[in-house]
């Protein structure tokens, strides 16, 4: 028993959780780390970019307004680092604003899908039986409706606002996640640790929250990071059609749309800068998601 008394006073050994293992694996993946850095830089640009320029996103630079094509290009002298947009506003400030809104849409869409989809799918899968059938048929029905059509209707009927856009994205984004979460739950719920919890008398909501959801999170997080770019793309498409984010707000999609409209006048910077941010962010999200998947994939261990 002598060793036991020593141990009682000894320091408690820290364990290495599966999350810590995954983090170590993630940081060994160079592409993923570079993507993470890019994403951080883009987020910093969205948050603090406005401080780098004396121009606001609403001001029209009347001095250059007359000849945007020749005078409105990117220049340090005029402090329009990215040039002007077709209406004579500072494109740098506009891109900052667009980045904020596009990232927000991507993140809100992914968040809704993570929270709603995971809980919905885990509940359906864990309880099973008739409830599972009803809940998943509802998902099937919602999926069968052409969402682009519904979204366009929503925006036309209730007016084009960013709130309606969130509602529309919220309505569709969780469906896939619910299916994925349910599938994973089905494989987890027959594990013995869940049986042990049932045998102990842990209540069903607690089993779902404490035992099922943490074991789903690996898959869910990976899917969510891949969902962010698809949400951004989705919003861009809607904005490109002219239905999404409305002036004076803007987004990557709306800026690209504006830029594309001016292409034939030779003001390529109006297309180039938003497109550049759009592309690097999407690439970064995809590589980041891939890196996360490799890090969290238990088969790789």
């Amino acid at each position: 028993m002598a060793h036991v008394t020593n141990v009682e006073t000894a320091e408690v050994i820290k364990g290495r959780s599966l999350w810590q293992d995954a983090r170590a694996r993630f940081f060994r993946n160079k592409a993923a780390v570079v993507s993470l850095v890019i994403l951080i830089l883009v987020s910093l640009f969205a948050l603090f970019g406005g401080m780098l320029t004396p121009w606001s996103n609403e001001e029209i630079d009347w001095n250059l307004m007359g000849d945007v094509r020749t005078l409105g290009g990117p220049s340090f002298e005029t402090k329009h680092y990215f040039g002007l947009d077709p209406l004579g506003r500072d494109l740098f400030a506009r891109v900052v604003q667009g980045t904020q809104i596009s990232l927000m849409i991507g993140i809100v869409g992914a968040l809704i899908s993570v929270v709603v989809g995971t809980l919905y799918g885990a509940t359906a899968g864990f309880i099973g039986g008739r409830l599972d059938n009803i809940m998943m048929r509802i998902v099937d029905i919602l999926m069968a409706i052409p969402y682009m059509f519904v979204l366009i209707l929503l925006l036309v009927v209730f007016g084009r606002s960013i709130f309606m856009l969130f509602v529309g994205i919220g309505l569709i984004s969780w469906l896939d996640m619910a299916r994925i979460a349910r599938g994973q739950t089905l494989s987890i719920k027959n594990k013995e640790f869940v049986e042990a919890a049932i045998a102990t008398g842990v209540s069903t909501p607690k089993i779902i929250i404490r035992h099922i959801v943490p074991n789903l999170l690996g898959v869910v997080i990976v899917y969510a990071t891949l969902l962010v770019p698809s949400m951004i793309m989705f919003e861009s498409f809607i904005s490109f059609l002219g239905l999404g984010v409305q002036e004076p707000l803007t987004s990557w999609g709306a800026l690209i749309n504006e830029g594309a409209g001016q292409m034939r006048y030779g003001t390529l910077w109006m297309l180039g800068f938003p497109l550049f941010f759009f592309l690097i962010s999407l690439f970064a999200f995809f590589f980041f998601g891939d890196g996360l998947r490799d890090a969290l994939d238990p088969k790789d261990r």
Binding site: S17, L18, E195, R210, H211
Partner: peptide, 9 residues
């Protein structure tokens, strides 16, 4: 399998 992999012992 009878121990939840995400919880400490």
């Amino acid at each position: 399998a009878s121990l939840n992999p995400r919880m400490t012992i």
